[in-house]
């Protein structure tokens, strides 16, 4: 027996330090993003203050900036999207966690729902422009890009997130609960509504919030379909609107001077909103793990 060589011990310590540094780099990246975006937004922050949030003009030539219409569009498009994708996603999650179909077929359906999330958003945008908008023009008062097609595509993109996370939460409910409920004489759907869904609720709500975070920050589908009207708020879903992400995607490449700072300010707002939604989602999901 002999003690380990000094070089061995050095490698061992160095390896562990390196791993620790890499892990801390992830947290550092998050802080770095926050600092950089905040720092770049500072000129606009001091110029416009909180009025930026309630002003509805976006006029680069006159250096007048406000993002009320874009904020309205961001929130409304996401809420409409979730109103469609939450019930459908939950239905899919329940259907795929019950024993309606053989496990083989079930796995294929789960894979197809996952695939829905894997299609690049720019492809959804392209499809929206050439197929969805012409179709909607036929059957609704829609006259071109607008809130409705953007919200519909956002619904398609958030649906797989809700379906996957709700299904996870549902399949984590102990089978004893189901057995007890059925043993007491409950039917399948009484069991689902009164036992399974309440028991899985924090996972389901966490999933819905993650989907909301995704919808708020989704860029390409919104940019290509919403019509990018940054100066007025229309209550109609058939009218063009804008989102913060779409505003950034449209104007960043050609912006200069104060406009860049104003866009950074808008990015900071979007970042803050999604950060809050995501952190709340993680906290809710963590509560589930403790049960």
């Amino acid at each position: 027996m002999q003690p380990r060589a000094a070089s061995e011990r050095f490698f061992d310590t160095a390896f562990k330090r390196l791993a620790l540094i890499a892990a801390l780099a992830v947290a550092a990246a998050l802080l770095w993003i926050t600092c950089i975006v905040a720092l770049r937004a500072l000129p606009a922050l001091s110029e416009f203050g909180l009025e930026f949030l309630v002003t509805s003009t976006w006029n680069p030539p006159r250096n007048a900036y406000g993002i009320l219409p874009s904020m309205y569009g961001t929130v409304v498009s996401s809420v409409i999207a979730l109103m469609i994708s939450v019930p459908i996603g939950l239905g899919v999650a329940i259907f795929l966690s019950e024993d309606y179909i053989p496990p083989g077929v079930q796995r294929i359906l789960v894979f197809l729902v996952e695939l829905l999330a894997a299609v690049p958003s720019v492809v959804y945008g392209l499809w929206g422009i050439f197929v969805l908008i012409p179709f909607l023009k036929e059957i609704t008062p829609l006259r071109g890009p607008g809130m409705l097609p953007a919200a519909l595509i956002l619904a398609v993109m958030t649906l797989p997130i809700i379906a996957a996370l709700a299904r996870d939460a549902i399949s984590n409910v102990p089978i004893e609960l189901r057995q007890a409920s059925v043993g007491l004489g409950a039917t399948r759907w009484e069991t689902i509504f009164r036992v399974i869904v309440p028991a899985a609720s924090s996972g389901i709500i966490g999933g819905i919030m993650l989907a909301l975070g995704r919808a708020l920050g989704e860029t390409m589908a919104a940019t290509m379909l919403i019509g990018n009207s940054t100066n007025n708020i229309s209550l109609s879903v058939f009218a063009p609107s804008s989102t913060i992400a779409a505003l950034l995607a449209n104007q960043f490449a050609e912006a200069s001077g104060l406009q860049v700072a104003a866009l950074m300010y808008a990015a900071l707002i979007l970042f803050a909103i999604t950060l809050v939604v995501n952190i709340l989602a993680q906290v809710v999901i963590r509560r589930l793990q403790r049960i």
């Binding site: 995607a249 960043f252 950060l275």
Partner: peptide, 13 residues
């Protein structure tokens, strides 16, 4: 949390 940061924000960064 990082996985939930919108990709456009990463672009801005």
């Amino acid at each position: 949390v990082l996985s939930g940061v919108p990709s456009i924000i990463v672009g801005v960064f």
